[in-house]
Simulated scan of single mutants.
Amino acid sequence: MFEPGTGPAADPAGAHHDRRIRSFQPRRSRVTQAQRDALTRLWPRWGLDIDGQRVLDLPTLFDTLPPTAPVVLEIGFGMGEATARMAAAEPGTGLLAADVHTPGQGNLLRLAERDGLGNIRVANGDAVILLEKMLPPASLAGLRVYFPDPWPKKRHHKRRIVQPHFLDLAAVPLAPGALVHCATDWEPYAEQMLDVLTAHPAFENTRPDGGYAPRPAIRPLTRFEGQGLDKGHTVRDLLFRRR
């Protein structure tokens, strides 16, 4: 879709990385002209491919922020509206936003430019490879996983991203005290997330009662979430801390 270096690669990890069960399905959606223009112009400056072939230097990546600025990883940002709002509310925090949806990548870059959000970087590809291969130990101040695919059919539960192995990988780049914030409107998945996070020795629940957390002010109410609430869905937030 894009010439090398001018936009997100179709398969950034390519043959360099073992094939694995993926928690996502690449979606074929039309890229608007505005999104394509943003990708072409801004990708060389604010985008990166998750190729698993290098370790990122986060102070260099977020060169508009002080070298000691905290960096938070968001996995799965949809069209990027909520990410842009969080970046505006946290101008001193670097937001590394990972997704595989090309229209969403273009839209988030467009919003970042429009709103002057120099603290956003967009990562294209499998976030599991990013965690495992490309982030230095203790380099992240937080991890956000909002409304991941619940994979509701039992035979697909293995594709859910929040699993023990995922937390093993995430524990390495998360610094002590880093916050892990998950949210879902799929009750069975919320229960699984709570069980898996509670059982993992690297994380502790910020709730004294060991349950779900109220929605923190930093997480905006998204359009998708609003539609779910209108249908009577209950949204669960989980807020854990890296030990």
Rank of each mutant, 00 (worst) to 15 (best):
2 F>L: 09
3 E>S: 10
6 T>S: 14
7 G>N: 00
8 P>G: 10
11 D>E: 11
12 P>A: 02
13 A>F: 01
17 H>R: 13
23 S>R: 02
24 F>Q: 01
24 F>N: 06
25 Q>L: 11
25 Q>D: 06
34 A>C: 00
34 A>L: 14
35 Q>P: 09
36 R>A: 14
40 T>V: 12
41 R>I: 01
43 W>M: 09
46 W>L: 14
47 G>F: 01
49 D>L: 04
54 R>H: 12
54 R>W: 02
55 V>R: 11
56 L>A: 03
59 P>I: 07
60 T>Q: 14
60 T>W: 10
61 L>G: 12
62 F>A: 13
65 L>C: 03
66 P>Q: 02
73 L>R: 07
75 I>E: 01
75 I>P: 04
76 G>V: 10
76 G>A: 07
78 G>P: 06
79 M>W: 11
80 G>E: 01
81 E>W: 06
82 A>C: 00
82 A>N: 03
83 T>P: 00
86 M>Y: 07
86 M>K: 08
87 A>H: 05
95 L>Y: 15
103 P>A: 02
103 P>I: 12
106 G>N: 09
106 G>I: 08
108 L>Y: 04
110 R>P: 00
111 L>R: 10
112 A>K: 05
113 E>M: 00
114 R>H: 12
115 D>F: 14
118 G>F: 05
120 I>R: 11
122 V>K: 10
122 V>E: 09
122 V>P: 13
124 N>H: 14
126 D>Q: 04
126 D>S: 02
128 V>E: 06
130 L>R: 07
130 L>N: 06
131 L>H: 05
131 L>E: 08
132 E>K: 11
133 K>H: 15
134 M>R: 03
140 L>M: 08
142 G>E: 12
142 G>Y: 11
142 G>N: 05
142 G>M: 04
146 Y>F: 15
150 P>N: 05
153 K>A: 03
155 R>Q: 11
160 R>S: 05
163 Q>W: 06
164 P>C: 11
165 H>V: 15
166 F>M: 10
166 F>E: 04
167 L>M: 15
168 D>I: 04
171 A>H: 06
172 V>D: 03
177 G>P: 04
177 G>N: 10
179 L>V: 13
179 L>N: 10
181 H>E: 13
190 A>L: 07
190 A>V: 01
191 E>R: 15
193 M>D: 03
193 M>S: 01
195 D>N: 09
195 D>M: 12
202 A>N: 05
202 A>V: 07
205 N>C: 15
205 N>W: 11
208 P>I: 07
208 P>C: 05
209 D>A: 12
210 G>I: 05
212 Y>A: 01
213 A>L: 09
218 I>H: 13
218 I>W: 10
220 P>M: 07
221 L>S: 13
223 R>A: 14
225 E>C: 02
225 E>V: 09
228 G>K: 04
230 D>R: 15
230 D>M: 12
232 G>M: 07
232 G>I: 06
235 V>C: 13
239 L>P: 02
240 F>G: 07
243 R>G: 14
243 R>S: 14
